[in-house]
Computed example of a mutant assay.
Amino acid sequence: MSSPADELGHLLAPQPQAGLQTRSAQVDGVTDRGVNLRIGDELLLDVPCSEGYRNRSAGDWVAVTKSARPVVVWRLGEDPGETTEAEIRELAAEVATDLQVVGAVSWGTEAPPGTGWQSVIGTFVRKGAQGKAEYYHQLAATTEPPPPTPPARPPSPVTISPTSSGTWRGGRPDSYASHPTQGDWTGRGNRRGGWFYGTQIAAACAGKTVASMAVTFTRARGSGVNAKRPLHVYLHDYTSPPSGQLSLGSGPEDLLRLSVGSRGTATLPASWRSALASGSARGLAIYAAGRTDYLAVTGGALRITFAAP
């Protein structure tokens, strides 16, 4: 039998908590290893995520396990189903643009049964503006009106990756920098980085109306402080890396703020997409002075969407 002292000691002793114990945290940035989490004044880097946490984005509030090695288990907030409906519809419309649908196909040696059939005396075909086949049937006599002309659809989006990139310091290429870099960490001079696309951007936009351009960057690890820092982005007019100084065009625009290892996508200003589409600008660059916003960046892929003609 237990004594009253033993029973009191058992009641006062810390009891193990049943079930999964979590706490809330906010996502500071999405990385290739997980997410960076902000908990109070502390920044946790590359926290792994369960498969249940999908469509990850900076600013999300998530549940993270209380453990020596925390794991993000789910997103907090509304059911994402409703918020992603527009994205699903946009993707479905994009896929439909690439398809050509015929209601039914049949044949035989006799005239088709039923009403509404019309005799074709000639068939014409051509390749349309978007590379899709267009058919036209010439009739002996019209007994039914033709179906309505489908609304014009925008050309499919394109993604353009840089053909090269680099960093410049002191008016010449800086071979010591592994990735495009901005700022000065060591006191040896400010760096500027650039991404080059040849003539791909203007070629992809020729004859089309550009609706938007968005660029994706990932902040390299081991560059500056871990906390978020802004990318000071500029345009440039080079199709390939220059042997001398990389001169900057319009800018800066602080399109993104990234913590170390995190990835982000930003929409370019309307004036910038017009310049890139016309070929008056050719690529993107970053530049900063001093240590405060020192960082290195990878990526640079441009996604271009178009409006219907």
Rank of each mutant, 00 (worst) to 15 (best):
P4M: 06
A5C: 08
E7L: 15
L8F: 07
L11K: 10
P16Y: 12
A25W: 02
V27E: 05
D28T: 07
T31E: 07
N36F: 06
G40C: 03
E42A: 12
V47R: 05
V47W: 03
Y53R: 01
S57Y: 07
D60A: 12
A63N: 11
V64S: 05
K66S: 11
R69M: 05
R75K: 15
P80K: 14
A92N: 10
A93F: 01
E94L: 12
V102F: 01
G103Y: 01
V105Q: 09
S106I: 03
W107E: 12
G108W: 08
P113N: 06
G116H: 12
S119D: 07
S119V: 14
V120G: 01
G128C: 00
E134M: 11
H137G: 10
H137N: 07
L139T: 08
A141L: 14
E144W: 11
P148G: 14
A152I: 04
T159H: 00
S164N: 01
G166F: 02
T167M: 04
G170M: 11
G170P: 09
R172G: 11
A177C: 08
S178A: 14
H179I: 01
D184T: 04
T186W: 14
G193Y: 02
Y197C: 03
G198I: 00
G198K: 02
Q200R: 10
A203W: 05
A203G: 04
A206M: 13
G207H: 07
K208I: 09
T209W: 03
T209A: 13
A227I: 06
A227T: 13
K228A: 13
P230Y: 04
L231G: 11
H232T: 00
G244V: 09
Q245H: 05
L246A: 05
S250I: 03
G251Y: 09
D254K: 09
S262R: 05
R263L: 13
L268P: 07
W272K: 05
L276E: 06
G283Q: 03
G283S: 02
A285Q: 07
I286F: 07
R291S: 12
A296H: 01
A296L: 06
